[in-house]
Design a protein around this nucleic acid. Structure first.
Length: 263
DNA sequence: AGGACTGTTCCGCG
DNA sequence: GCGCGGAACAGTCC
C-alpha cells in the first residue's frame, strides 16, 4: 500500500503500536529485505521515540538508531495474531510489552534499512527527495517552481520524487482529474489559474484519501475493498459528467482520465 | 494462459 | 541534460 496517504496512515498506526515501548528484537526472515550500516541486533532494547513519514518512507526512530522502511508495491506492517491474511512475512519486529509487528510483502520489493541515528539525515538525503506537498499548504506558484524546467507531460512530472516527494501513479491521475487538467499537457503549458487549481487539488486529494482510508484496516481495491478514488480504477462512468473514463499507458504506467472533464 | 499491479532503479536510445 | 521505453525485482489476482 504504497503512496503518501497510505504510508502516512501506516506510520500513524505504527506510532500507536510501538511509540514509547522498547524493541525486543528484529528478526529478519528474508535477508533480501534488509540493508544498512547496522545489523538487526543493534535495535534490541532501544525505546521507540517516534514513527514518522518522509515521502513514501517510514522512519521508526529509536534512541540511538533508526529503522527506515519502504513498502514499495505490496509491503505492509500488520499486528501478529489479528487474523489478517498474510502473504509473505519477511521480518518480525517484537515489541517489549507490546505487539509483534510483521513486515509482510508478497513481492518482496519492500526494504528495511537500519542506520545510526546520527546517520539518518544523510541516509534520507541520499534519496534526493524533493519537499513534501503536505500537510503544509502549497500554492500554485510553489508547484510551478517545483516542476519548472520539465519538458514532459504533467502527470509523470507529478510523480518525480526529486521535485515533489510522495506522489505516485494514483495521485498523478487523481490530481489531474480533480484540477480538470489533461494528463498529457506539457508542464510548460499550464496557466497560473491551472497551477492554482492543481495545488488545491493535490491537497484535497491527500486529505480526502486519508479520510476515506482511515477506517481501521485499509483494504485495497483488488482485495474486495471500495475504490476511494475519483478516477483511478473507475472503469464505469465519470463521477462528475457521467462520460466514459479512459485508461491509457503513459511513461509505462496506467493513466486514467475523462476527456469530457479534463482539458 | 496471460495480463495487470499502488514503486524504484538501471540500461539504452534519441 | 532530458524523457521515454523496457527490463528487472517477485508474487498475487482476475
Amino acid at each position: 500500500m504504497p503512496e503518501l496517504p497510505e504510508v502516512e496512515l501506516c506510520c500513524q498506526s505504527m506510532e500507536r503500536w510501538c511509540a514509547g515501548c522498547r524493541i525486543g528484537s528484529l528478526e529478519i526472515l528474508d535477508s533480501r529485505v534488509v540493508s544498512g550500516s547496522l545489523g538487526p541486533e543493534s535495535l534490541s532494547g532501544q525505546r521507540v521515540e517516534r514513527v514518522w513519514r518522509r515521502a513514501k518512507l517510514g522512519i521508526i526512530e529509536l534512541e540511538d538508531s533508526a529503522l527506515v522502511f519502504h513498502l514499495r508495491m505490496t509491503g505492509q506492517w500488520l499486528v501478529e495474531g489479528r487474523g489478517a491474511r498474510l502473504r509473505r512475512v519477511r521480518a518480525r519486529l517484537v515489541i517489549t510489552d507490546g505487539p509483534v509487528l510483521l513486515f509482510d510483502d508478497s513481492r518482496c520489493l519492500g526494504r528495511l534499512e537500519i542506520c545510526a541515528l546520527k546517520e539518518l539525515e544523510s541516509v534520507l538525503e541520499a534519496r534526493g527527495l524533493g519537499p513534501e506537498p503536505w500537510p503544509e499548504r502549497r500554492d500554485g506558484a510553489w508547484w510551478k517552481a517545483r516542476l519548472h524546467g520539465l519538458r514532459g507531460p504533467i502527470k509523470p512530472a507529478l510523480m518525480r520524487q526529486d521535485r515533489v516527494a510522495g506522489l505516485g501513479n494514483i495521485a498523478g491521475s487523481e490530481i489531474c482529474f480533480r484540477s480538470g487538467i489533461d494528463p498529457t499537457r506539457k508542464v510548460s503549458s499550464l496557466t497560473e489559474t491551472e497551477w492554482a487549481g492543481l495545488a488545491e487539488a493535490a491537497h484535497r486529494y491527500i486529505d480526502s484519501t486519508l479520510e476515506a482510508e482511515d477506517s481501521g484496516d485499509l483494504i485495497y481495491i483488488q482485495h474486495g475493498g471500495v475504490n476511494p478514488f475519483q478516477i483511478y480504477g473507475r472503469c464505469d462512468a465519470c463521477v462528475r459528467c457521467g462520460g466514459r473514463v479512459e485508461r491509457f499507458v503513459q511513461s509505462g504506467r496506467a493513466t486514467w482520465w475523462c476527456s469530457g472533464c479534463q482539458v
